[in-house]
Measured scan of single mutants.
Amino acid sequence: MASQGTKRSYEQMETDGERQNATEIRASVGKMIDGIGRFYIQMCTELKLSDYEGRLIQNSLTIERMVLSAFDERRNKYLEEHPSAGKDPKKTGGPIYKRVDRKWMRELVLYDKEEIRRIWRQANNGDDATAGLTHMMIWHSNLNDTTYQRTRALVRTGMDPRMCSLMQGSTLPRRSGAAGAAVKGVGTMVMELIRMIKRGINDRNFWRGENGRKTRSAYERMCNILKGKFQTAAQRAMMDQVRESRNPGNAEIEDLIFLARSALILRGSVAHKSCLPACVYGPAVASGYDFEKEGYSLVGIDPFKLLQNSQVYSLIRPNENPAHKSQLVWMACNSAAFEDLRVLSFIRGTKVSPRGKLSTRGVQIASNENMDAMESSTLELRSRYWAIRTRSGGNTNQQRASAGQISVQPAFSVQRNLPFDKPTIMAAFTGNTEGRTSDMRAEIIRMMEGAKPEEMSFQGRGVFELSDERAANPIVPSFDMSNEGSYFFGDNAEEYDN
């Protein structure tokens, strides 16, 4: 993207840094990872977990959730003011799984939030270390993106479920800051804005008074975040219109849905970061690795190297396929839920299948599930090659597409044709070009129609051997075009429920 120079890199967003050079960025990201790792080690000690239990991804998720809940100030305040039966607002906890007599047992633990905050700050040299908290939120978000298709949420806001490739980060909490905003897809931002506008339509006082002023500035800020994701002048001009509207209503909703559809071809720039579970960072720190000293990046080879040398386990339900569970977590670790499966298959070195073909449910185990038949197995999170994460949407291309997802959002900077089903997408653009945004709409449609099938995206960008740390010898991959490109292809993934 041309304006790259004016933006802070995501590592800076990730670490609240002012302008830093590459070495400083690597050190501050490393410091953040160190903090998460030290916190995780301490929690495993508190909970008396064995090494194996500490490497269980379900335990990692519970521990991450506990610290996120302990620092969720708004919710904590709300819980104190609106006490609900049987919930102690000062405590947080969740299921911890232990191996007892050759069987997995679930144990519900409860801790004072104050105590968890103390352990977290102690692991982070006394700081609140917001960057580390956001990092864990993005890992949870990436896992949700890989596990669930947001059909219901899309339909509720009037969008087409086939636009799911635009929904990265749709389950990120509001408090995820600049680093969170960077990884949100165009569809996620559109959905947040539509929800806001709908509230304004239904509630006369939404934009009024002292609160209304705050609401208005939040609305304009979200519009600017979305505008910054678009790469064409016409899309940005249309966002200006939406932002400046005196009284946002149905016309703005129409414009936003139009823009979301246009992003299936004229893709937005959305950041991709490899955020790993805390149970990967903990053992690495415990083994003596100093992330701050060595430096770390979320968008280069580092996460690949770390996963190459990590042992992570997962509980497996009786009829689940461990290899499929591994694929789910591998995609989440690489922030690749909406990437082209052919690119992923090449990088991973084994075939990556669409969601609907995987015999696996989510990673988390519900409290009512029976533990008797639970097994555990090693997650295979290694890769054959590594590639640089991208934040450009890439230019655009036609490809055989599917009944489910009709476009992709690249996660890796790797040369390819970008699949999208042009006739299906263009069919949504018939007729409606009147109104105050008509010239911009016409211009956007013209650009979409001009998108050429034979153009290559990320020209000359390749993948790298894991021994090639400096990215000196790019390998331009070859793809098996007979395979499906979309992950949520004609899909039956479970729906995400809060």
Rank of each mutant, 00 (worst) to 15 (best):
A286L: 03
R106I: 07
D421G: 14
V312S: 06
Y296D: 06
G17P: 00
S407V: 14
Q231C: 05
V343Y: 12
G187A: 02
A323P: 01
T151I: 13
V476C: 01
Y296G: 13
V109R: 06
A233E: 05
E11I: 08
N492A: 03
T390R: 07
A22D: 04
S274A: 14
N432A: 06
E465L: 10
T146H: 03
M222T: 14
A153V: 14
A27T: 02
P410H: 08
G435K: 08
A286R: 01
P83D: 04
D240H: 04
L256A: 03
D34E: 02
D340M: 11
G200M: 13
V183R: 04
G362K: 11
M191Y: 02
S402L: 05
V285F: 02
R19F: 04
F230R: 10
Q149I: 08
F489G: 10
T134G: 04
D497E: 01
N397S: 05
E114R: 05
A251K: 10
F420I: 15
I253W: 10
G126F: 05
K31Q: 05
A129G: 04
T130R: 07
A218T: 01
S478N: 11
M331D: 06
R243W: 12
R261F: 12
G450H: 02
E380G: 03
A336V: 14
S84P: 15
Q327F: 12
G435I: 14
N473W: 05
K357L: 13
R243T: 00
R75Y: 11
Q399S: 00
P410E: 08
A428Y: 06
D421R: 15
N395D: 06
V100W: 10
N368C: 01
L172P: 08
S28Q: 02
L315S: 02
V186N: 12
G393W: 10
P95C: 09
I265G: 05
S413H: 14
N473F: 09
V186H: 01
K229G: 04
Q405N: 02
A323C: 01
L108W: 10
R441L: 09
T390K: 07
P477W: 11
N211I: 15
W104H: 12
F429T: 02
A284C: 14
K273N: 03
E494L: 03
K351A: 05
Q398M: 05
K48M: 09
R446K: 15
